[in-house]
Design a binder for these strands. Structure first.
Length: 471
DNA sequence: CACTAGGATAGTG
DNA sequence: CACTATCCTAGTG
């Protein structure tokens, strides 16, 4: 009989509908890479002007805030400078009414971008007008800060939200001062090796750990400071995410988004950042698929908004995590403590060189080189085959010998090493019995679905993505 | 022999 | 139900 298919192992691997706690060993769950942190910093605190944390938790022990430019400019300036951003000039060019430009935290100002929103400054408080997207901007970019969902059902009642600028400044300044005081002002960045914070975290860690295990005072201070800022950023972004979830009625976990959720989120984010609309079909996918997209793929789909969307998604992914743990740059994954799912021993990935490099770095893909993946093991087992193939294709330096683009713009690619690709696929899906025969069968299913098509001149091992899957 | 093509069925979420 | 994973038969170069 054919009931003897014993190759089936109990598949406990959750799919998109499941909650994250049981991710596979390779599953990357949070800001696992320094690049993620970079995103966070860029989009959140460090790179943004006075931050409208509308409902930031009241700080009981607040002191009178230093007047805006005088006391803070130094810190802000430094903060901005070493992040490579122009120092904001909080000048008031509107006569007697001081204004503050609250700009959407477009991290990469490379794309078109909405005009700054000017807000009249009142003593210590800023009324925030309604935006196109009725949600006030937050530094983290996600929709923010409503005290409750109900506010939205009665728009008339909340035309203005008040931002406690004192709070904002104090919060940020406290951190800046803290850092600055520990290291003498001008050199502290170097000492902390803070420059492009995220990207160098690895090296920082490595150097330090290799240097003196004991760690002179300096060494040990680095992590906590950065960590403090990050924690704050994460906290805020989590609040923002939660609020947005409430408004959009979507899960905080992008992996659980349906295609509709993704649409909602994309539209919301575009609107929120006043970015040009993107054809819906470009992001016609569920959350799992969205999460699997590399930054480059975001940019291909939405040249003007891709970076922002990608950065936002990074924040959402980060916010998924309940806690921000110190030393995120450590080799360990940032996944919440959970037992390794049955099936693949987690060590296995490590041992198998060829495969462990596997797809992870790829997510980073051609884009920033590091972005989403870093050294983090990529992804969930929920990934679709076509996404997986694109992941491989996105890192030719790693998998170029197994699979490569023949015609990138038309989505034509060739599998050079069918065995290896199949093995990688099997590994990712925790299907040890995977082979090219099965893999190709799955690919052929895509013909029907319009995800892939046969190439004009059929060649062995050559396939072609359909638009927009090739993006 | 390696691959292509596609039907059928089972498993999973 | 979608999306594979698996098995299988038939055909191609």
């Amino acid at each position: 009989m054919d009931t003897v298919r014993t190759t089936h192992m109990p598949q406990t691997v959750p799919r998109s509908g499941c909650s994250p706690p049981s991710a596979s060993p390779g599953e990357r769950t949070v800001p696992a890479s320094p690049a993620d942190l970079h995103h966070l910093l860029r989009v959140l605190g460090a790179a943004s002007p006075p931050e409208p944390m509308l409902h930031s938790p009241p700080n009981p022990h607040t002191k009178p805030p230093p007047p805006y430019p005088e006391d803070n400019s130094g810190f802000l300036e430094r903060l901005y400078d070493f992040e490579g951003y122009p120092t904001p000039s909080p000048s008031s060019d509107e006569g007697s009414i001081p204004t503050v430009a609250l700009q959407p935290p477009s991290p990469y100002n490379s794309f078109q971008y909405s005009p700054p929103v000017y807000v009249k400054e009142e003593p210590n408080r800023l009324p925030v007008p309604e935006f196109a997207s009725p949600y006030p901007l937050s530094p983290s970019g996600s929709c923010v800060s409503y005290s409750s969902y109900h506010q939205y059902s009665s728009p008339a009642s909340h035309h203005e939200e008040y931002i406690d600028i004192e709070e904002l400044l104090k919060k940020r300044i406290r951190y800046c001062k803290k850092v600055s005081n520990r290291r003498q002002d001008t050199t502290f960045q170097k000492r902390l090796n803070l420059r492009p914070i995220p990207f160098e975290l690895n090296s920082v860690k490595m150097e330090e750990s290799s240097g003196g295990a004991g760690g002179t005072g300096d060494d040990t201070l680095v992590a906590p400071d950065i960590d403090g800022v990050l924690s704050m950023a994460i906290e805020q972004s989590k609040r923002d995410v939660d609020n947005t979830c409430t408004v959009l009625g979507i899960s905080p976990d992008p992996l659980q988004w349906s295609a509709e959720d993704v649409q909602s989120w994309v539209m919301f984010t575009l609107q929120h950042f006043r970015l040009a609309p993107v054809p819906a079909e470009y992001f016609a996918m569920d959350g799992v698929a969205l999460v699997a997209l590399t930054e480059e793929e975001f940019n291909r789909r939405a040249p003007l908004a891709g970076s922002t969307l990608y950065a936002q998604l990074e924040i959402w992914k980060a916010a998924r995590h309940e806690t921000w743990r110190p030393a995120p740059w450590s080799e360990q994954e940032q996944t919440s403590p959970k037992p390794a799912p049955p099936g693949l021993p987690s060590a296995d990935d490590m041992s198998d060189d060829e495969d462990s490099e596997s797809v992870s770095a790829s997510a980073a893909g051609a884009g920033s080189g590091v972005s989403a993946g870093g050294k983090a093991k990529s992804g969930s087992t929920h990934i679709h085959l076509w996404q997986f193939l694109k992941e491989l294709l996105a890192s030719p330096q790693v998998h170029g010998s197994a699979i490569r683009w023949l015609d990138r713009s038309n989505g034509v690619f060739k599998i050079e090493d069918s065995v290896r690709v199949a093995r990688l696929w099997g590994k990712r899906k925790n299907r040890p019995a995977m082979n090219y025969d099965k893999l190709s069968r799955s690919i052929r299913q895509y013909y029907k679905k319009g995800i892939m098509k046969k190439t004009e001149r059929s060649q062995r091992l050559v396939y072609q993505f359909c638009h927009p899957y090739c993006l």
